Computed example of a mutant assay.
Amino acid sequence: MQQLTINQIPFVNLKTQHAALKSELLAAIGEVLDDCNFILGEQVAEFERQFAQLCGVSYAVGVNSGTDALIFALKALGIGSGDEVITAPNSFVASASCIRVLGAKPVFVDVGDDYNIDVSQIAAAITPKTKAIIPVHLTGRPCEMEPILALAQEKRIAVVEDAAQAVLAEYQNQPVGSFGIVGCFSLHPLKILNGCGDGGVLVTNDPQLYEQFKIMRNIGLRTRDDCVLWSHNSRLDTLQAAILLVKLRYVQEWTQQRRQNARYYQTQLAGIPQIKIPLEREWEKSVYSNFIIQAERRDELRQFLSDRGIGTAIHYPVPIHLSTVGKELGYPEGSFPVTEMQAQRILSLPIYQGLTVEELHRVCENIKLFYRYS
């Protein structure tokens, strides 16, 4: 791992996060080592209970990744060969690969200024083969769930929320993940609520789906000696659950810090005409898994900041339909003009909890400097 100097502002800083929690994390890990219940131990059940409560739902099931959460959600709904599932083309590839690996077809709909699926275009994409919609709460901003749910109910299709980046995000004061028949979350190390390794969670209010997910994540086993369906091993490790239980104590505080950092950026960068900043609407609570601006001369700006010790990222530079694997879906360049335009302009700024006002000020001042004097 690259060594940080005192003058650098990294894009992420997991080292500092874990240093502050090290004694608590080691104590939690030590309990697991003492018990030796490494597979589906009591920490997994307790994490699931607390996570369900956090999301305002009845049930949560821990799995080994957010990708598996999406795959299990679609598989449990019977989606497979010949079916179509609508989603957005600007997300991480897992939002579409979960559809394709089941033999179904991802059908893309362009996005709006908030980087989320444009609800006004969904109806035109629905066909008799459409079985589900996967709205992606990208960057931790909630999609407009009310019209999505209304359309889905009218057309009798399922809604599976991809909330991988959106723990604690809210739409109209209701947590994301609680709107669709299933909500899917990631616990990847780069998420706000993050494991020390991979992990994911499914949430639902449906007791039958809950029981099915528990079987699916455990190689199809209903009991140790009775396998009732073909599946694979996707259990959330007890060690990861123990780590996540520690971090659950802080996730509200971390989210609030990110929101404060976002407000600082929104205030300080508002007057720069060459960039566009995300602004919350009255019905949404964003958690800012990423703080993405749109910037003129984006690549030059990124290099300028890097030269001054400021880390940035691009989420995501190649839309799924233009990726090597996505080209098989038959969407030529120009199919989704907003997505493609944004891909040329988006830049993620450091937003993590623990950033100081001085560091935030330095990021903003260097952006201003780039556009004034370069």
Rank of each mutant, 00 (worst) to 15 (best):
F213S: 00
E211D: 10
N205W: 07
I215Q: 00
L77D: 02
Q303D: 15
G103W: 10
Q121S: 09
L202K: 01
V61L: 04
S65C: 10
G80R: 09
W254D: 06
I181R: 07
C227T: 12
R217E: 05
A295M: 06
L4W: 04
Q266N: 13
G334D: 08
V338D: 03
Y373C: 10
Q172H: 13
N261V: 13
Q53T: 15
L349N: 02
G326S: 12
V85M: 07
R49G: 08
T356G: 10
H18G: 04
I314L: 12
T339W: 03
S289I: 04
L369V: 06
G220P: 04
V93P: 01
L190G: 07
L248T: 11
K368V: 08
V111I: 15
L279G: 06
A295F: 04
F108I: 06
A241S: 12
V109D: 00
V111K: 01
Q53N: 14
Q153R: 14
A45I: 06
S335V: 08
I293G: 01
L322V: 14
K368D: 03
A166K: 04
D118G: 06
A76F: 03
K131D: 04
M341G: 12
T204E: 05
E24S: 13
L236P: 00
I292P: 00
E144N: 11
H232L: 09
R362T: 15
T204G: 04
N13T: 12
E282A: 14
K368M: 09
L329M: 15
I277N: 04
A270K: 10
A241T: 08
C184V: 05
V201S: 00
I192G: 02
S81L: 15
A270C: 09
Y316M: 13
I320Q: 03
W230Q: 13
P337Q: 12
P278V: 02
S120Q: 11
E358D: 15
E253T: 15
V357K: 11
A169H: 01
V251T: 14
V325S: 15
R222M: 13
R141F: 10
E211C: 06
H315N: 14
Q53K: 15
G199W: 00
L305P: 02
L102N: 11
F11D: 05
E340L: 12
Y316W: 14
G309V: 06
V63W: 03
I219R: 08
V287W: 00
V201H: 01
E211H: 05
H321L: 07
D118L: 08
P142K: 03
N218S: 11
C184Y: 01
R302Y: 07
L347P: 03
Y115C: 06
Y171P: 01
R156C: 10
E284V: 09
E170G: 05
A28F: 08
G62P: 02
V167W: 05
G62A: 09
S91I: 05
Q252E: 15
S289A: 14
